[in-house]
């Protein structure tokens, strides 16, 4: 059996709760974008979830909890997966410098929600995948540095002393001790900011697209939030 730890989860966030709570209020709805990144993330998460729920409802499906205690039956879940994430050929594809080819479908409720929010799901996909993996790219580049290679050699000798077979997977305690003793952790801490800065400069165009489309999505999400509030207010009156 796999060791599964349930994700730390927060209850419905303030933004979502506010949508519900203001349903009966008489205050006018306003489409404002919050200033803090955390509140912005919450606004985007609420909007995407709202759009996905509506899309699923049109297909006679409901969105389960983020990580349901009891997963739905396989056949039922496959229908839900198809509705959520799409089917058929994967129209979106981007190969990263790390060698991973990330793909996604353009159909499905998640894709439809992103199209609604970001306005261009193809441009958003390329920007999001690139920006989300800047750190992975920086860490991959770090490995070409002679100081990193030397530290990694010391780490390997630490994890597999001479005369003893190298363990297939050193235990976490051994790995952590060897990271310290080999200096690998220090080398990583020194090199990563440098490599990350270089990668960010290299991917400046995608970073700019990411910011531009996120700004667009925040405005759209705020409009949706205000619209939902107004609609709920009207329904209640």
């Amino acid at each position: 059996m796999l060791s599964v730890t349930r994700r730390t989860r927060r209850p419905l966030a303030t933004a979502a709760a506010a949508l519900v709570l203001t349903g009966c209020a008489t205050v006018p709805a306003r489409s404002t974008v919050p200033s803090s990144p955390q509140a912005q993330d919450e606004l985007l998460g609420t909007a995407e979830r709202t759009l996905v729920v509506r899309c699923l409802a049109a297909r006679d499906l409901t969105l389960p909890d983020t990580a349901p205690a009891r997963p739905p039956a396989p056949a039922e879940d496959r229908r839900l997966q198809a509705a959520l994430f799409g089917t058929g050929p994967r129209e979106l594809s981007l190969t990263l410098a790390t060698g991973h080819t990330v793909t996604a479908h353009t159909d499905g409720c998640v894709a439809a929600a992103r199209q609604n929010l970001y306005g261009d799901q193809t441009r958003w996909f390329r920007a999001q995948v690139t920006v989300d993996n800047l750190r992975a790219e920086a860490q991959a580049r770090m490995k070409d540095d002679p100081a990193h290679r030397a530290a990694l050699d010391r780490w390997t000798r630490c994890a597999a002393p001479p005369g003893r077979p190298r363990p297939e997977r050193p235990g976490p305690a051994v790995a952590a001790r060897c990271e310290r003793e080999s200096g690998l952790a220090d080398v990583r801490a020194r090199l990563e900011p440098v490599e990350l800065a270089e990668v960010r400069a290299l991917r400046g165009d995608q970073l700019a697209t990411y910011r531009q489309l996120r700004t667009r999505a925040l405005r759209r999400a705020a409009e949706l939030s205000a619209g939902t509030t107004e609609q709920k207010g009207n329904d209640a009156s």
């Binding site: 919450e42 998460g45 979830r49 999001q128 992975a136």
Partner: peptide, 28 residues
């Protein structure tokens, strides 16, 4: 996805999120 939900997955090459992060994926 949802508000306040950890929906991105980071994959690492060593145990306990050690070593390099090899890939990070958003839902879908």
């Amino acid at each position: 996805s949802g508000p306040g939900v950890k929906d991105h997955v980071r994959v690492y090459e060593s145990a306990w999120q050690g070593g390099a992060m090899t890939i990070c994926l958003a839902p879908g």
